[in-house]
Design a protein around this nucleic acid. Structure first.
Length: 428
RNA sequence: GGAGAGGUGGCAGAGUGGUCGAUUGCACCGGCUUGCUAAGCCGGCGUACCGUUUUCGCGGUACCGAGGGUUCGAAUCCCUCCCUCUCCGCCA
């Protein structure tokens, strides 16, 4: 959410920012309504002031004088109520319009209408050259019997999977490795609720707008989170933190749920687009400082790159263009891992928001200047599984269909250096 | 699921219709004082919005879990919801 004062002061910049991102906003109506809001508010407050004073007077009066005063103030009371109703309507619409205005992208973000405008920044790692016909992860996994798709469909429908044996072990290994990696870099691990109320989703700017992608539990007014970014970022919502405690670095481990509505028919094969997965997410809550935010952004991106490098997975870093940025994002780097069967596939997404989310969730801190400021928030994937397993299986496959386990994962795999038909059950 | 208790400022904890944004204690900040053990005294100490101001600031309104209602006037009375705690039941 943008500050209404900022919107008023930088109207044209806000207008252009929305245009660049491809958002439709009615700024003129917002300003007009806000003007109206101030007029109504001023009148209401003036009357309340009178009412307060009269109230004190009435308390001291008796008899006719008292009745007269009460009668007189009844009219004022009615007027205040009417104003209150009008004000509520206006404020509701102001907030609706205001919360729909996107954060302008940072000036260095490439201009573009959609993902076609994204810019590749660099490629890291060697794309493997096979001297045999490589298989895709579905074939590899099914041959080893470490993922079961048909039975998953039987139980849970399309876009689901069952990790089995060494597949399940690998999933846990990758998650734990990534968690340890970011914990080593100062992140506090958290396991958070995956069923949350509306507010955290509004605060992180998934709602309104993301309802179609979100599983809902209407009976209990809860929603299944698509990422632990939601509960972790909102962890301190409605709080005033101390500047000395910032930045806060948290990593959330959670199962993630996504309806993938509108994606029917896309990526239906395999582990790429699925309704349920696991993720370790980096979240940083920082003070309100653009330079510092940029430093944190680089930091969380670097952490993700280190994790992919350690697992010997080639990847590229993409600078996401204006048209492909979300409403609150100032800048976003996507990291795409090399998946021989499909090419580059997004495995990480590093976003910075400045105070966009913190305004929506009332996440603030008291600065050393004694004043209260909105925090800056950032997040990036540390690891998302099983999508990243696609890259591991396909990049590290051997001609006989076995999988080489990258060295850093071996300790997390109980010492296994490979997955073969012999050890794929996972059982000892 | 059943029965009960409760949600007040960073924390603790008063306050049952007007002078309560709210006693007091602790914590915290500033100053003073003191040769003594987590000392004493004085002062300050919430947030948001509106207005005003060159800055410090000043004026106003709102906020006692959330929303609604009664009333000239609500922390206080009524309704709905949310949350927490205790006991019972159920349960990984």
């Amino acid at each position: 959410m943008l500050d209404i004062k900022y919107i008023r002061a930088e109207l044209e910049a806000v207008r252009k920012g929305a245009e660049d991102k491809g958002f439709q906003v009615d700024l003129d109506r917002l300003i007009a309504l806000d003007d109206q809001r101030k007029v109504l508010l001023t009148e209401q407050e003036t009357l309340r002031h009178d009412q307060k004073n009269a109230g004190k007077e009435i308390a001291t009066l008796d008899g006719d004088a008292k009745q007269e005063a009460i009668q007189r103030m009844a009219e004022v009371s009615d007027r205040i109520k009417t104003l209150g109703d009008e004000l509520r309507e206006v404020v509701t619409e102001v907030e609706e319009l205001q919360s729909g205005i996107p954060m302008p992208a940072a000036p260095e973000v490439p201009l573009g209408p959609d993902d076609s405008g994204n810019v590749e920044l660099r490629v890291v790692g060697e794309i493997p050259q096979f001297d045999f016909e490589p298989k895709d992860h579905v074939e590899l996994a099914q041959d080893l019997d470490i993922v079961d798709f048909p039975r998953a469909s039987k139980l849970a429908g399309s876009q689901t999977y069952i990790l089995k044996g060494a597949g399940a072990l690998l999933e846990i290994a990758v998650l734990r490795f990534a968690l340890d990696h970011v914990v080593d870099r100062g992140f506090v691990p958290m396991m958070v609720p995956t069923m949350v109320k509306y507010e955290p989703l509004f605060g992180t700017a998934y709602f309104p707008g993301g309802e179609e992608q979100t599983y809902e539990i209407p009976k209990d007014h809860l929603y299944l989170t698509g990422t632990s970014e939601v509960p972790v970022t909102a962890y301190h919502s409605d709080e005033i933190l101390e500047e000395d405690d910032l930045p806060l670095k948290y990593c959330g481990w959670s199962t993630c749920y996504r309806r993938e509505a509108g994606a029917a028919g896309r990526d239906t094969r395999g582990l790429y687009r699925i309704h349920q997965f696991n993720k370790v997410e980096q979240v940083i809550i920082a003070k309100s400082d653009v330079e510092e935010s940029i430093t944190h952004h680089d930091f969380i991106r670097d952490n993700a790159e280190e994790i992919l490098q350690a697992m010997e997975i080639p990847y590229r870093v993409v600078d996401v263009c204006t048209g492909d940025l979300g409403m609150g994002q100032v800048r976003k780097f996507d990291i795409e891992a090399w998946m021989p069967s499909r090419g580059w596939g997004e495995t990480h997404s590093a976003s910075r928001f400045y105070d966009y989310q913190s305004r929506r969730m009332n996440l603030r801190y008291r600065g050393k200047d004694g004043k209260v400021h909105y925090c800056h928030t950032l997040n990036n994937t540390a690891i998302a599984t099983p999508r990243v397993l696609i890259a591991i299986l396909e990049n590290h496959q051997r001609e006989d269909g076995s999988i080489r386990i990258p060295e850093v994962l071996v300790p997390y795999m109980g010492g296994r250096t490979e997955i073969t038909r012999d050890n794929a059950s996972g059982a000892r």
